[in-house]
């Protein structure tokens, strides 16, 4: 049987979510943002909640997320997405509201908005993409840059005595009573993608049940910022990022996960 005979509509088992627009992602080749966009929209599509979901885009590489997700979206000032989401959810409590933020947006300039939205237990989802660097502005040090890791504003590596330590904000917000679900995922292998999608589904389930804030971190790559090829970047991420930012659930059903 020739493979061309397999390619028929009735044999289709996987396709790009119909809730993504036709516009090609503006992300660098291999960037995890695209995979995460895809997964979120797959879940929204499968739940059939496009008409009652509003997303908030950040400032950073994913500032144009609204160009790719075919749904109503707002684009926030740098770091302020949880404030926008707070207002939207309180005015429209029956709609699904999520933010999509990078590490600079969420864990540096927007730390106050992040922590207070979580502490109020706003019934929203915060998707947090952590690649340890400022991608869009050209590879500067992020709040999550690893000790010793070079960036354009710490070209000799992050010296924690001068620049402070990287911030594990997911562990931090998991301590807050308002946070019902906190998890850390990645999307660089098929197995991790499947797990990440389950985490996204869980987050929407939490919002449906009005249980409080869901905080879903994705440890992701930045090939351009890390100056590695996409596949090498994923290997570097496994070797360096995961030991510092271990994958897995941190808080489930309002209870911290003990390891």
């Amino acid at each position: 049987m020739d493979f061309k005979d397999i390619i028929k509509p009735e044999n289709l088992v996987y396709r790009r979510s119909s809730l993504l627009t036709d516009k090609p992602f503006s992300y660098c080749p291999g960037c995890g943002h695209g995979t995460i966009h895809r997964l979120i929209m797959e879940v929204v599509e499968e739940l059939g909640i496009q008409e009652i979901t509003v997303g908030i885009a950040p400032v950073g590489c994913s500032v144009l997320a609204y160009e790719f997700m075919n749904m109503d979206m707002q684009q926030a000032a740098h770091g302020r997405a949880p404030a926008l989401a707070t207002a939207l959810k309180r005015l429209m409590p029956d709609k699904y509201i999520f933010t999509y933020q990078g590490d600079g947006d969420l864990a540096a300039i927007g730390t106050a908005e992040t922590i207070h939205a979580c502490n109020r237990g706003e019934n929203i989802i915060i998707f947090f993409v952590n690649n340890g660097i400022y991608g869009m502005t050209g590879g500067q040090m992020a709040p999550t840059t690893l000790p010793g890791m070079p960036a354009s504003t710490c070209p000799f590596g992050r010296d924690v005595n001068i620049m402070g330590n990287p911030l594990k904000i997911t562990e931090l917000v998991a301590q807050l009573p308002g946070v019902h679900f906190a998890t850390r995922q990645s999307v660089h292998t098929p197995r991790n993608v499947r797990r990440a999608k389950k985490a996204i589904q869980m987050a929407f389930e939490v919002q449906k049940n009005k249980k409080g804030t869901s905080f879903v971190e994705f440890v992701s790559n930045c090939n351009s910022g890390w100056k590695l090829s996409p596949v090498a970047a994923n290997e570097w991420m496994e070797q360096h990022m995961f030991p510092f930012y271990p994958l897995g659930d941190i808080k489930v059903d309002g209870n911290l996960v003990t390891k």
């Binding site: 044999n11 289709l12 088992v13 996987y14 992300y27 695209g34 895809r38 098929p190």
Partner: peptide, 26 residues
């Protein structure tokens, strides 16, 4: 192409969502 089993692993890690997957049982 003759070795493809239609597992979709490639498609679900594709950051740009450019892969569609087809599968048949023979």
């Amino acid at each position: 192409p003759e070795d493809c089993i239609g597992c979709a692993n490639c498609a679900i890690v594709c950051p740009d969502g450019v892969i569609s997957v087809y599968k048949v049982k023979l």
